[in-house]
Design a protein around this nucleic acid. Structure first.
Length: 313
DNA sequence: ACGATTATTGCGTTCTT
DNA sequence: AAGAAAACAATAATCGT
């Protein structure tokens, strides 16, 4: 809202915006200024970042984590006494190393994928780190069994982008990821449930800055669009709708009101929707007056249906 | 390009079994 | 309690201007 000092991101030239404690780039999420508030937990696992001594880069092919080769030490009924106890011990140790190495392999794989994803989506390192730590939490919470690693990598990246206020749509993430929408969702739901992520439905405003800059719209238009988006949220227009589509429609409406020649198709494209979506939302946006079912219920109308769809961008 | 109309899709509800 | 089906809202596709 108040931008006084630097007007563009040193990395990607995106516009900056301020939150409570920091100024961040609206496109890549780079934190330009930060008024010393330490945000979130201190993640930093043993071996870190840039060096990556483990052989990275190797396994980008799809591999299910459970489907590897395994060796087991059978329970021999013939072994007796000391020999039997030795075997038992071996079995225990062996299983332990197997679990550890499995975990480690998974982690390396997931981290590599997260790194690749954040790169491909133009997300900053902070998102990558958050995503990795989130994956670690998920692993410790034993959320992985029965769900795909790729899904978790995608979901962690998605959540990371969300909390950094540089949301990407599920479509964007899944297109770049080696995961299907279903896998992403399974992982996301699991983490959301078990880890108590504070990830509510996406607000259209989260997409506004990025879309605005992609469309070369000035701050004035963006501000107006933001007002529209807030009003849309209050009115209940957003519930059940694709937030990205609403954001694009708000921008279109704002631009249109100011005489800019922004085409519906252009607005639709940045949000990955069709012009007809822009149209219908535009209508709802401009003539929200005539009829409003349940006029006064301000909280009641909050979530009628499609709350799930609002969750996923 | 925009608006109106029809088709499709997706999801919550409800109606079973 | 889990699954099938009718119902509804948003989005996409299509046609007309």
């Amino acid at each position: 809202m108040t931008q006084a000092r630097q007007s563009s991101c040193p990395e990607c030239e995106g516009r900056l915006r301020s939150t409570n404690s920091e100024r961040i780039c609206s496109e890549c999420g780079l934190i330009v200024e930060e008024s010393r508030i330490d945000h979130g937990p201190e993640w930093r696992s043993f071996q870190d970042d840039e060096s990556d001594p483990e052989r990275t880069g190797a396994p980008l092919t799809r591999s299910r984590h459970d489907r590897g080769l395994t060796t087991e030490i059978g329970k021999s009924t013939r072994a007796k006494g000391r020999k039997r106890r030795r075997l038992a011990r071996m079995r225990v140790q062996h299983s332990r190393t197997q679990i550890n190495s499995k975990r480690e392999r998974n982690q390396v794989y997931a981290f590599t994928e997260i790194r690749r994803l954040t790169g491909a989506l133009g997300l900053p390192g902070s998102v990558k780190e958050y995503a990795c730590s989130l994956f670690d939490s998920a692993q410790q919470a034993d959320l992985l069994r029965g769900r795909s690693l790729e899904g978790f990598a995608a979901a962690c990246t998605y959540v990371g982008a969300r909390v950094a206020d540089v949301a990407r749509t599920v479509t964007e993430v899944c297109d770049a990821a080696k995961a299907t929408r279903e896998e992403h969702r399974a992982a996301f739901d699991a983490m959301n449930r078990e880890l108590r992520l504070s990830i509510g439905p996406v607000s259209p405003t989260e997409y506004l800055p990025r879309f605005a800059s992609e469309l070369d719209l000035g701050p004035g238009v963006e501000r107006r669009a933001c007002q529209l988006a807030e009003k849309a949220t209050e009115t209940g227009i957003v519930s059940g709708r694709n937030p990205g589509g609403v954001a694009a429609a708000c921008l279109y409406t704002a631009a249109s009101n100011q005489g800019l020649d922004l085409t519906q198709k252009a607005a639709a494209d940045v949000a990955d929707v069709t012009p007809s979506t822009i149209r219908s939302t535009y209508r709802a946006l401009t003539e929200w007056h005539p009829h409003m079912t349940e006029a006064v219920g301000f909280e009641s109308q909050g979530h009628r249906r499609g709350s799930v769809r609002s969750l996923i961008g």
